[in-house]
Amino acid sequence: MTLLEFSAVVFAGSVTAGLLGSLTGLGGGIVVIPLLTLGFGVDIRYAAGAALVSVIATSSGAASSYVKEGYSNLRIGMFLEVATTSGAVAGALLAADLPESAISLLFGVVLLLSSALSLREPARGDDGAASDPIARRLRLDGTYPSPEGRIAYHVHGTKTAFGLMFVAGSLSGLLGIGSGAVKVLALDRAMGLPFKVSTTTSNFMIGVTAAASAGIYLARGYIDPGLAMPVMLGVLVGALVGARLLARVESRSLRVLFAAVIALLGLQMIHGGISGSPP
């Protein structure tokens, strides 16, 4: 396959991955990596480098509109970015010392878990519990817009969320993904944030987390321009289209189908990791 053909096929595949990532809420990075490794035989390090770049692009694109709507909580985002960025640096540094098979295996497990998480019903949001002392000291409580004016919410479980965010960051650095699923888990389950606040704040944080890994990926030669170009552009286009379709894809059966596709990719990655051969 020539570079021109390769770029065209990878671009088309990345549009699909971006679409699927956007519709499941998992992000394009986590879908495009199995596509590149299983579909095109790309080494997982090149795949992770290209995916990470696409993660930054989609996060910036989505966050630029979310932030203006006033849903995301910038204080929570910044405080937890201390955990995600340090986790990301640790993960990215560690990635170089792990064999390709171990990374495939871990990736497969994360895909399976993410697939299950994507089927969860959204948390019911603010459960009325009082803010914890750390959240009060850090002034994490906030408000979000609604037709009846801004509604206030309280924040708790700050310590747990901080720990989960370190894990999310490490996975992001190890695997080249945005770890949106773990971030949303920390924000809406541990901290009890309203659904729209947790998804937008998570998206807002993903770009900074990915940038913390990307610097190291770049220095280690994981980011190849020939591969990153079609992947970044494709995932971005897919994510933008997905964001427009999102309102229309509420059907449960479609979500189950998407989750099944993701789980299948996860099993393939685990198989590739165990059999030891490049998948």
């Binding site: 396959m1 020539t2 570079l3 021109l4 390769f6 770029s7 590149l36 095109f40 035989g41 790309v42 080494d43 390090r45 090149y46 795949a47 390709e100 280690r220 030669g221 994981y222 980011i223 190849d224 020939g226 591969l227 490049p278």
Partner: peptide, 14 residues
């Protein structure tokens, strides 16, 4: 370079 053949199967690093 559109006519060249890319190879990303083996990691060489940039």
């Amino acid at each position: 370079h559109g006519a060249q053949t890319p190879d990303y199967r083996i990691f060489h690093g940039e």
